[in-house]
Design a protein around this nucleic acid. Structure first.
Lengths: 366, 366
DNA sequence: GTGAAAGCGCTAACAA
DNA sequence: TTGTTAGCGCTTTCAC
């Protein structure tokens, strides 16, 4: 790459001062038409591209927002680049990327859809988006790295240590997703997990007449906690037996669904339905159930929560509670931009509605 | 937001010079352990976050890559934020975001999956990713904006004017996706469209014994051009009649599939199969065919190209040629990083293999 | 309407 | 090992 042209080069070429060059770009009407043309032409000839770093430094803002993505499901296997020549048809060497079904189980997930909402809204509002996270080195480092580049930051839950986040929030507005307000500096975007889970559980009870239900899944996160609570409240309201705790195999349901199924069977008669904390856990459970020779929903109904795409292509298609993920992403940006414009205003929280999506895994017919 | 702490503040607090602060962060081993601790502690207390702008300016690189996303399918309707309270179940006011099927017709598409590959590889290699584009104001402006922030840039085909891209490429490495090398400054990542399309056409001919085939879809892009060519070459090799041009309704197939179906029917006997340039066009065609009372694949087989998710949940599931999208994204980053490290090296081109995915729309049984 | 000049916060020689 | 200092490229008063 040859030397990168700067304002100075443009100024020299156009025979004006650097201030004029700057004005020509930023305040076109503060410059005489003819000089502006002159400057723009010079810039064009030189291939001048303003440095965002310099601009950000001088101006004090970057006009970019940041998003820190998950660390939940880090891509363990660094899918190698395919080596082959440009060939076709059956290539069992690259199953992961070439098997759409396998691929679809991992993407798009909750994070991805929310991220998309963030992207769309950012662009709509003229912001660039800096994304970092998933699988990157030290979370703390990445955090600071991203935070240093943007005017506002969005983070997924449990992505970074709370105190680190606090520190950032002191500097720029931060929105945390799917995490209740814990009286910090952060703004929050959440959904009504309790009501969503209560509704889907009520459906199982009222429509499918199920009476013995279990809750399956990790309940560490506050989202999941709330879902468990919604489940229990529906059972309680219906006068049914309320399980005290969630079933969650050692190491989580997703990688240990078989163990969960075993536990389910050894406990006595199989429950009529399993309400899962997330779609991914529900899908893993369905797989394990079917691997054990059981049929969903005949032997046991299964429901999820989130509304990820994989639920649609599952057999049977998964009944679930869908979060308005794109909207959540948009809300995040909305809040961030508001907070940037209004740094001294109060932090904002926003709760969005969820929706029950009835498919077949609960016993509904297509 | 209170005053943002800088190196100076940290230095003062720690009783050292700013250089030491900088070193403590960047070259920890060039600083005595005790002073480093001191500095880090001071930084922590102050909530210091290094400014990426300043760093980028001083150091000459940003350690971020850029991706300029599509303008193809701009989201016409700026989905408004849902207004309601946190409620549940049936909310016909927000169909788009809440109807998973509708949603998955638009996401993830080709761009999205490639983008994901870019993200994963960026993070794996310790780069942040700046994304811009889709739906954003003037493409030229955005281009410069993004380009000014990053060390390397990836662009989707037909996203920006060639000359603008040239100018950027003179400054930082640029990789263009799905576009053949046209002897510019750019590097390229492509797939073997010709071979892929030839293979799927051969499948129709050899396995399903179809003899009258049409090609449907826009052939403006070079990707699509190559696919049409592959289609023709398969027909020619089989000694079948080779259509001279593609069928593409006014304004494209996607929004005008009904017109294409009408044309198909008025031309004489319905062809036995329609080979489409892209999955999206194939899906639109299938919809229109079914709306006209025809059955796929009985009345007419349909195939696509790309391997987007929507093809899997279509009825019947879409037979297609899948591009290794994640790999393409990873390859892009790979090239970019190589070119950054090696600015004077030659530009690089890379072609990846595609794969035929047989589902039901071609006549194959599940 | 245009130019001169003072930073913005950080890095990297070079000195000490 | 640490400090001094000169930029990095741009924005933005303030003069002219």
């Amino acid at each position: 790459m040859a030397k990168v042209p700067t304002v100075y080069d443009v100024a020299e070429r156009a025979g004006v001062s650097i201030a004029t060059v700057s004005f020509a770009f930023r305040k076109p009407d503060k410059v005489k038409d003819s000089t502006r043309e002159l400057v723009l032409a010079a810039a064009r000839q030189l291939g001048y591209v303003p440095s965002a770093s310099a601009r950000g430094l001088a101006h004090g803002r970057t006009s970019a927002l940041g998003l820190l993505a998950f660390d939940y499901l880090l891509e363990a296997d660094e899918t190698p680049l395919s080596t082959g020549e440009a060939v076709i048809v059956d290539d069992p060497d690259h199953p992961a990327d070439f098997d759409p079904n396998a691929n679809f189980r991992m993407f798009p997930l909750y994070v991805d859809e929310v991220q998309r909402g963030v992207e769309l809204e950012c662009w709509r509002q003229g912001y660039a988006l800096m994304i970092g996270g998933r699988g990157q080195a030290t979370t703390e480092t990445v955090l600071a790295d991203i935070a240093g580049r943007v005017d506002g930051l969005a983070v997924f839950p449990a992505t970074v240590p709370a105190d680190a986040l606090q520190r950032i929030a002191w500097r720029i507005p931060v929105v945390e997703l799917s995490e209740p307000d814990h009286d910090d500096q952060l703004s929050h975007v959440t959904v009504d997990n309790v009501a969503g889970m209560r509704a889907i559980t009520e459906h199982l009870i009222a429509v499918h007449r199920l009476e013995s239900l279990v809750f399956v899944g990790d309940t560490t996160g506050s989202d999941q906690q709330a879902r468990f609570q919604g489940f229990r409240s529906a059972l309680r309201a219906a006068g049914l037996r309320v399980p005290r705790k969630s079933l969650s195999g050692p190491g989580g349901v997703i990688n240990n669904a078989a163990a969960v199924v075993t536990e389910l069977r050894t406990r006595g008669p199989l429950p009529q339905g399993a309400v899962c904390a997330t779609d991914q856990e529900a899908l893993a459970l369905m797989d394990a159930l079917q691997a054990a020779g059981l049929t969903v929903p005949a032997d046991m109904a299964v429901t999820g929560f989130d509304g990820i795409a994989a639920g649609m292509i599952a057999r049977p298609p998964l009944t679930t509670v869908r979060q308005p993920m794109e909207q959540m992403g948009r809300a995040v940006v909305d809040i961030l931009i508001d907070r940037i414009a209004n740094p001294d205003g109060p932090r904002r929280n926003r709760q969005l509605p969820v929706r029950v999506v009835l498919r077949e895994s609960c016993g509904c017919r297509p």
